[in-house]
Design a protein around this nucleic acid. Structure first.
Length: 851
RNA sequence: GCCGGAGUGGCGGAAUGGCAGACGCAGCCGGCUUAAACCCGGCGGCCGAAAGGCGUGGGGGUUCGAAUCCCUCCUCCGGCACCA
């Protein structure tokens, strides 16, 4: 039998050398077309999408953290007979290319494409099963042509429009969509610069049309936090729109309608003044002559203030009276009108009825300006007391007070009745307001999709005819520096004949928000070469909605919302039938630098995966990323523990290639652990393997990769205890090893392929890839235990453990418990007052009253 | 301030009403080695000599039984920023 070996024999098995194994298998898989998906085979299709990277230059560990578990899912599903499509591409337009071009004096295209080339190489190192034949690069005219085409369809359908309005403007990046302005101090999401306001003519997509529909998540499975964030972002508020009229005065005839939106129509009797946004259209018409100067000064100041700083939300309220009154439609009362910058022009109607008794902001303003506070909602018994702060709470017993004929009604009902009354009189109606804005897509940048319109002095704005698409982005342009769009000075690009009148005209120089590109790329993946249409209708019908979309949570209210909007828009154009682009979105956590900060080159905390791969191999890096914690959690990068995963793979290697090995001098060589006999040892091996298979399968299903790896380690540790024993290498051992390799295959595809091929060779069987194997099924009989340990509690504290046959019923367990000497001692002759059998005999709790 | 998530050994984490700390890292002990590394085996929450007691951010509650459910407070992370 096996015996201690000479130390020299340690090297008798080949060392695990991932660096030589991995590229070999990667080449082989590619050669065999193992990852090429037949898109016309529509059986068992599984569209697995992972966010395409921005070609910043290098793949970093964060990309691996998203993509390698995604690949494990792809491989796992293939082993279940699924026809998995896992495409990849590059989000290749955007500002960094332009900045690099200015700095390094190379063209954004060259910079981008050389990065793409490097990242393709790095992505291949992962050993991921990307189908490169469907690759999409958004800066290719073949791709962005279709952005332009979609834009023209939206224009025709009235879903795209041009408007002059104050827009958020970054000195570096130009126009930003509302979502791209971050934080209280309003900084650019990309460069962090302070965002200003500018009045500009810009292109919008009418996505507010979908506000209500976007709140319906029934056809898409998002993580809860993302759903909440989108819901908040859309910001639906229900209430009423109420029409006040301006009161007649010596300088003004009155009768001008001023509409306000309120979520609290029940407080209408408490309106003691009105506030307009400084930008409100009626400010000019309503302001009394003697107030004009002060009002104009405030309006000017407010403009500057919004441009410069609105840091604090609890700063002092400012505003000025405009010397006019409004008439409260419910009681005919005259209330003074103010302008103040705490009322936003962009929300609701840009005007509010101010109810200081029931709104904190109005209360602060009233205090500041000595205005009346009239309470109109009060909990029972609390009427008439002076308020030291706004009463905004909701009590069950509250009712309207000081509200004319509505007094005494519960607040909710009172509010509804007030709106109903006003509606009869044509002075109000129920209304809904959203925080969501239309999507502003114009960018004053070069490296993006040119917006396909032409400005003609005679004909105005003329869409580029579809047959003239794409409007090509000129490759040779002259950069003046940051903040200047070189297209505005490119005469060859600018000058064009008007498609309508043939006269001289100029091209639009704005390009599209790159979120346009990323809002439909998964449709293009299905037919990247199709020249006559953006998407292949039949394939889109059969392959989408995407089954699972993996990527970062940082896109919760941008990409994830735009993608949904875009699908709804093209659905309304009849191009797709589904309501949502993806069935399920999974957001993995973010890997931070070792310092806990976001990884970035400027902070110098970026982890380069190439370095790790050359040291440990891709399999170890993949497995480590899955093992370090729950996938949706992320966390600061720390390579501590990488060695443990590498050790684990080495142990799998050793077990697989040399089951009989024993340490020199090991006195246990050839013997079985725990005094087991051989049949018991064989059964234990099979049981361990099949229980692990059961658990690992469940973990793969729900993406619990960290525990999946832990359980494989456990099984490996068990096998190691039998290594060199009399059951090493027997049939049951061999079956366990087979299962280990199959379970490992999705996560660590190279080593499992290598060991699989050696295993086949050793058995004299012809080679075939482990990745074409079928996922094994659990043998429940083998997995079943013959005996079971039952913890015994007394009053909830574990006092003993007893071993019973696996099929023991409660009565048998109870008898065994009461027979235990330890328990008898604790009971001291008493009978338990209650015996709890928990979880189908998993645990017994004896309850004794009064100690 | 509002919305959401989280808080468990020295560290990453496991357990989602039933044995707290699986698995791994770091550490300690032993084996192998001339030696070290590698490798192999073992120990490992805290207090205590032991019996035992205490222990999942703090406090309270529900339950035979709570890391897990409820209330409340604290801390950290993400999102929003006067949204009427």
């Amino acid at each position: 039998m096996t015996q201690a070996r000479d130390p020299k024999e340690r090297s008798r098995i080949e060392r695990y050398d991932p660096v030589s194994i991995e590229p070999r298998w990667q080449a082989r898989w590619e050669e065999l077309g193992l990852h090429r998906t037949d898109l016309d085979d529509t059986k068992n299709r599984y569209y697995l999408l992972t966010m395409y990277p921005y070609p910043s230059g290098d793949i970093h560990i964060g990309h691996w953290y998203i993509k390698t578990p995604t690949d494990a899912i792809a491989r796992y599903q293939r082993m279940h007979g699924k026809n998995v499509f896992l495409p990849i591409g590059f989000d290749a337009f955007g500002l960094p290319a332009e900045n690099a071009a200015i700095k390094q004096k190379i063209s954004p295209r060259d910079w981008t494409m050389s990065n793409v080339a490097n990242m393709r190489r790095q992505l291949r190192q992962m050993g991921a099963t990307f189908d490169w034949s469907s690759e999409v690069v958004t800066s290719d005219p073949d791709y962005y042509k279709w952005n332009q085409w979609f834009f023209l369809q939206f224009l025709k359908a009235g879903l795209a429009y041009r408007a002059n309005s104050p827009v958020d403007f970054c000195p570096n990046d130009g126009t930003l969509a509302r979502e791209q302005v971050e934080g209280a101090d309003r900084r650019c999401w990309r460069c962090g610069a302070k965002v200003e306001k500018r009045d500009l003519d810009q292109w919008y997509l009418r996505v507010t049309k979908y506000a209500d529909e976007l709140l319906d998540f029934s056809e898409i499975r998002f993580p809860d936090p993302i759903r909440m964030m989108q819901t908040n972002w859309i910001g639906r508020s229900e209430g009423g729109e109420i029409v006040f009229e301006s009161a007649p005065s010596e300088h003004h005839p009155g009768g001008e309608e001023i509409r306000v939106f309120t979520t609290r129509p029940d407080t209408l009797f408490g309106a003691t003044f009105m506030v307009l946004a400084p930008e409100h259209q009626l400010v000019g018409a309503l302001t009394a002559p003697e107030r004009r100067e002060e009002v104009a000064a405030y309006v000017a100041r407010a403009q500057v203030a919004t441009e410069i700083e609105r840091l604090s939300t609890d700063r002092e309220k400012t505003g000025v009276a405009i010397g006019a009154d409004a008439i409260n439609p419910v009681n005919g009362e005259r209330i003074p009108i103010f302008i103040a910058d705490y009322v936003l022009a962009t929300y609701g109607t840009g005007a509010i009825m101010a109810v200081p008794a029931h709104d904190e902001r109005d209360f602060a303003f009233a205090k500041q300006f000595g205005l009346a506070v009239r309470q109109v909602v009060a909990p029972a018994g609390a009427e008439g007391e002076a308020l030291s702060e706004a009463y905004v709470a909701h009590a069950d017993d509250e009712a309207l007070v000081n509200s004319g004929e509505f007094s005494g009604l519960p607040a909710d009902e009172g509010g509804r009745r007030i709106v109903a009354r006003l509606e009869e009189q044509g002075k109000g109606k129920p209304a809904v307001t959203y925080r969501l804005r239309d999507w502003l897509i114009s960018r004053q940048r070069y490296w993006g999709t040119p917006i396909p319109v032409i400005h003609c002095d005679q004909c105005g704005i003329v869409p580029v005819p579809e047959e003239d698409l794409p409007v090509l982005l000129p490759d040779t342009v002259d950069y003046a520096g940051v903040g200047v769009n070189p297209l505005t000075r490119d005469e060859a690009f600018l000058n064009v004949k008007c498609p309508s009148c043939g006269g001289p005209a100029r091209r639009e120089t704005d390009t599209m928000d790159t979120f346009m590109d990323s809002s439909w790329y998964w449709y293009r993946y299905l037919s990247p070469d199709r020249a006559d249409f953006p998407i292949d209708h039949d394939r889109v019908e059969t392959w989408t909605p995407v089954q699972l979309y993996t990527g970062g949570a940082e896109h919760a209210v941008m990409h994830h919302l735009y993608g949904r909007m875009f699908t709804k828009m093209i659905r309304d154009l009849g191009m797709v039938r589904q309501n949502e682009p993806w069935r399920r979105v999974f957001n993995q956590g973010q890997i931070l630098g070792a310092d806990g900060e976001r990884m970035s080159k400027s902070r110098g905390n970026v982890q380069d995966p190439d370095e790790l791969v050359s040291k440990y191999g891709a399999d170890t890096v993949r497995l480590f990323l899955m093992f370090m914690g729950p996938w949706d959690q992320g966390g600061p990068w720390s390579p501590t523990g990488m060695g443990g995963v590498y050790r684990f793979l080495n142990r799998v290697w050793a077990l697989s290639l040399d089951p009989h090995y024993r340490e020199p001098g090991d006195p246990d060589a050839g013997t079985l652990p725990d005094g087991q006999d051989e049949p018991a040892a064989r059964a234990a091996l099979r049981a361990a393997a099949h229980r692990t298979l059961r658990d690992v399968t469940a973990d793969y299903e729900v993406f619990h990769f960290n525990t999946m790896v832990a359980k494989l380690m456990e099984l490996t540790n068990t096998l190691f205890r039998y290594r060199g024993s009399s059951v090493a290498g027997v049939e049951d051992w061999d079956e366990a090893m087979r299962l280990v390799l199959l379970m490992l295959a999705p996560a660590a595809p190279h080593i499992s392929e290598e060991l699989w091929s050696r295993r086949l060779a050793a058995r004299g069987e012809a080679w075939s890839s482990i990745h074409k194997e079928t996922w094994p099924t659990v043998d429940e009989t083998a997995a079943a235990e013959s005996t079971r340990e039952v913890p015994v509690q007394v009053n909830g504290k574990v006092r003993d453990r007893i071993t019973v046959p696996a099929d023991a019923d409660s009565a048998a367990i109870e008898a065994a418990v009461l027979a235990s000497p330890r328990i008898q001692q604790l009971l001291a002759g008493r009978a338990p007052d209650r015996v709890i059998h928990a979880g189908g005999g998993r645990l017994v709790n004896l309850v004794l009253r009064d100690g």
